[in-house]
C-alpha cells in the first residue's frame, strides 16, 4: 500500500543546491523572474539560464512563497 498522502505519485524532481540554504529545480523553473524581483536583498540572479545566489540570503522565504512553480526552496531559519 502507498503511504498515506502520496497515493503512488512521484516526489519532486531533484533540485540543485545553489547555496547553503537554497535549492533550485531547473525542471520546474519557467524563468518568470518573480523570485528575483520579490527578494528584498537582491540575492537571486540568472546566469546563463541557471539560477544563482549571491550569498546574501536572510532566509525570509519570500521567493519560495511566491514562486508559482515550486522551483525554489529555502530552508527555514533554525529557531
Amino acid at each position: 500500500m502507498d503511504p498515506p498522502g502520496h497515493r503512488g505519485t512521484e516526489m519532486p524532481k531533484p533540485s540543485k543546491p545553489i547555496d547553503a540554504h537554497i535549492a533550485w529545480t531547473a525542471d520546474y523553473c519557467k524563468h518568470c523572474s518573480t523570485c528575483i524581483t520579490i527578494c528584498p536583498v537582491k540575492n537571486l540572479e540568472f546566469k546563463d539560464d541557471e539560477m544563482t545566489s549571491l550569498g546574501k540570503c536572510t532566509q525570509c522565504l519570500l521567493c519560495m512563497k511566491y514562486c508559482p512553480d515550486f522551483a525554489i526552496e529555502v530552508e527555514a531559519k533554525k529557531k
Binding site: S33, C67, P68
Partner: peptide, 19 residues
C-alpha cells in the same frame, strides 16, 4: 508531482494561489 510543471504561463498568478 508527476504532473509538474503546470500548463500555466511563466509568472501567472494561478501558480502562487495554488501553492
Amino acid at each position: 508531482w508527476e504532473r509538474m510543471p503546470t500548463t500555466w504561463c511563466p509568472g501567472c498568478a494561478i501558480g502562487t494561489i495554488f501553492k
